[in-house]
Design a protein around this nucleic acid. Structure first.
Lengths: 156, 156
DNA sequence: TTTTTCATGTCAACATAGTTGACGTTAGGA
DNA sequence: TCCTAACGTCAACTATGTTGACATGAAAAA
């Protein structure tokens, strides 16, 4: 049996020599992303679900009766990549797809109550992390964070 | 041929109904991460490399003569997962491993000049995105961003 | 009306990044 | 010396994504 290096050893944030003044910020982005998603991912894993499933649930929760095509556009992955996680969610009845009789061309997705519960809880873990961090710096800090992230997000 | 939905359709940030006040922040984290890594990933792809290769190069650049074991601990993935990308980097001579004659138990990793160039450039794309965002909000905003990200990163 | 076009969704094959398990080798402590 | 544990490698598997091929239904053009 392997003892110490077998499992994902805990993040180990810090301790790297900084070659540039922005290295610290760069690493913060990495560990921040991990920090936000960690507890949600652990919860999802207990249900046999993971990040892609959550992303689908998140979007459908906020846009009921969305078509698969629009879902794909928002997620930014190929329709084939959506297919398997989507299939699992349908099979587990966390969401349902109906075709409206007259718009037979696309399927409309909607969360079931079970799906809503899971989405709520998983996203709740992520929001909790954000809320605590925001509380620690106060509203001006939170606003600054949003401004920086907006600038980064729009940089492409 | 597929027309519109075949490739990763561009992010589409926004436009989702917000169910909670922190939903916007949550989405910003997602798109921020994408925004920061996008151009670096595109550059790496032209070389047949990707994110895991870059992470290895990044760490080794900042800790020359690191052992594989320590590398694993910092990256937070299993040693087996490191094995393949590491092998490619060695094969391409972007880094070299030497065993010191007396410490025969572990290999020491170090970047070659070619490896340094690629690491510089890839990380440079990421820093550029951060720098531009920081410039837009000024030093206090940047400091606030760092504070929030630090709190998030340490939340586990 | 018939034909063509195209968005839509599904299936199959493949690539990549991660996991666990098994194992050989080396170093160091009892 | 011998036993244990760290180190690293190889093989097999899972999951998330990719492209390609294709069936189907709606709508537009002929």
């Amino acid at each position: 049996m392997q003892k110490k290096t077998s499992h994902a050893a805990g993040l180990h944030r810090a301790s790297l020599k900084k070659l540039h003044d922005l290295d610290a910020a760069l690493e913060l982005m990495y560990y921040g992303w991990r920090g936000m998603t960690l507890s949600a991912d652990e919860y999802l894993a207990t249900l046999g679900l993971s990040r892609p499933h959550h992303r689908i649930l998140y979007v459908v929760a906020r846009q009921p009766d969305i078509s698969i095509g629009s879902l794909i556009e928002i997620l930014g992955i190929s329709k084939q990549a959506v297919n398997r996680p989507l299939g699992l969610l349908l099979e587990r009845k966390l969401l349902i797809s109906k075709r409206s009789p007259e718009q037979h061309r696309s399927k409309l997705l909607r969360l079931t109550e079970a799906g809503q519960r899971i989405e709520q809880r998983a996203s709740g873990y992520e929001r909790k992390v954000l809320r605590e961090a925001f509380d620690r710096v106060g509203p001006p800090g939170a606003a600054a964070w949003m401004a920086v992230m907006g600038a980064i997000a729009d940089s492409n």
